[in-house]
Computed example of a mutant assay.
Amino acid sequence: MNDTLAFGTVDTVLGRLLVGETETGIVSLHFHDSPAARTRTAKAAGLPVVDAPDRLAPALSALRDYFSGDLKTFELPIDWRLTSDVQRQVLTTLYTTVPYGNVLTYGELGERSGTGVHAQVIGQVMGSNPIPLIVPCHRVVASNGLGGYSGGSGVEVKRWLLTLEGSVPATLDWDLTQPP
């Protein structure tokens, strides 16, 4: 059977997330569901789009559990086809070695991944991560603060995610059910 791409959505406090999955695994996650996001992903993956809700059920359920605070580890298969070799090496290292509630710096991830690339390049890899949240680029911070975040509405989403995970102390007005 040839590979296909299926999409599913899940409503979260951050909005409606769009997840793309092939027979191999999760290939994309977008912070906004839109026809343009679907078209870009399908074109980049070079795959026909099919309706396969059963395929996406585990990923969508895992995301619901994550946002409710009940899931600490995503154990979902990943399809790395939308990444380069360096991206894949860095993002695989991130996915497999930085657990919930932990952070590391861009430079530390560069060293840990064995790529020998500078912290700035690691930042670019994080910004181009096709599977944010599940491959937790929000857990990578600058040596002098949070650093940037290209997901959702930006760095406040990163702060919210790190607060959810306990890496950043909650402010008195922080609420699991309120968006950043």
Rank of each mutant, 00 (worst) to 15 (best):
T105M: 07
P35A: 13
S28L: 10
E108S: 09
G69M: 06
D33M: 07
Q87Y: 08
L82W: 13
L71E: 03
P53M: 02
E23V: 13
V13S: 01
D173F: 01
V27A: 07
L14D: 03
D79I: 01
S68W: 05
Q87N: 08
Y66F: 09
D70E: 01
P58M: 12
G20L: 05
V13I: 10
Y149D: 03
M1I: 05
L133K: 06
G20I: 11
H30S: 15
A57Q: 09
T97L: 04
V155N: 13
V13F: 00
V10M: 06
L91I: 00
T83C: 11
T9P: 08
N144M: 15
L29P: 10
G154C: 11
G46T: 07
V13H: 00
P48E: 11
G123A: 05
I26R: 15
P179Q: 14
V50G: 01
G127Y: 10
D70T: 05
A62K: 09
P130L: 07
L164P: 03
R88C: 03
L56S: 12
E75W: 04
E23L: 15
G123C: 14
L161Y: 02
V19D: 09
A142Y: 11
L161H: 02
D51N: 14
L63R: 07
F7N: 02
G166C: 05
L76H: 15
V98C: 07
W80V: 08
L109G: 08
V13P: 00
A36K: 11
E75F: 06
H30Q: 07
A37Y: 02
G116T: 03
A170H: 00
V155L: 11
V49Y: 10
S61H: 15
G114S: 00
A170M: 02
S61K: 08
